[in-house]
Nucleic acid binder design. Structure first.
Lengths: 122, 122
DNA sequence: CAGCATCCTGCGTGATACTG
DNA sequence: CAGTATCACGCAGGATGCTG
């Protein structure tokens, strides 16, 4: 079982590592309404960030695996062809939704309109 | 002025960008108790992640600037020598604290003991 | 449809040294 | 003390093409 690290591990830092990457949080958020298929998640990632190109399979696949490894989501493969795979939140993942909701809520209030990130940069 | 992007910008994605990096969240959390000096923040980053080495000035400096640009923290320079600079949360930054608290709280409950990130990796 | 294989690039992060 | 200047490196993330 890991290494039985008795020391503090700073939940905030752990969280940072866990959701590192550009899409993990959005994926979790997308999954809050129920299971979704690979392609659906992919499509969902497009809406809301028209500026960027489509997420590549390589990246999405990695994010999905990382989330699975973190225990936030679960992969369900409906055998055979044509391939059909669904991803759904685990219990842990579901417990995480309110946190993302809080994030989304805050973001809605404080950075939906303008400010920062763009003009304040240089 | 930015670009007056009228479309949805997905608060979650915006959040991701805003707190991207390994230390931003922790810095904000450290600042919740009041203003702190550059060196204090640096020291604070050490506790809780004994695995990694000390944060380098270059990195800390950038994180601080990014947070300032995001409008989460504010830099107060007490003129002259010897240099003394304090960083404190802005109003926006303070409103963000509860969110980090939620994150920390969740992390405490779900990844303080063991699991993920280590053994589930490969 | 749901991926994997390969190659490539930028940037986030770190180490070290120097300065006002 | 509070940074900046350089150099270096690994990895996240994207592009393209292929497969079961």
């Amino acid at each position: 079982m890991a290494k039985a690290n008795p020391a503090r591990i700073c939940p905030v830092a752990a969280f940072q590592r866990m959701i590192s990457g550009k899409y993990k949080l959005r994926i979790v958020w997308d999954l809050k309404d129920g299971p979704r298929r690979y392609g659906e998640i992919r499509s969902g990632l497009l809406r809301g960030t028209e500026g960027s190109a489509e997420i590549t399979p390589r990246v999405l696949s990695r994010e999905l695996k990382a989330l699975t490894a973190s225990g936030l989501i679960d992969r369900k493969d409906f055998g055979e062809v044509p391939p059909k795979v669904e991803y759904r939140l685990t219990r842990k993942g579901k417990s995480f939704v309110p946190v993302v909701a809080a994030i989304r809520d805050w973001g809605d209030r404080h950075l939906s309109e303008a400010v920062s990130l763009v003009d304040a940069a240089e």
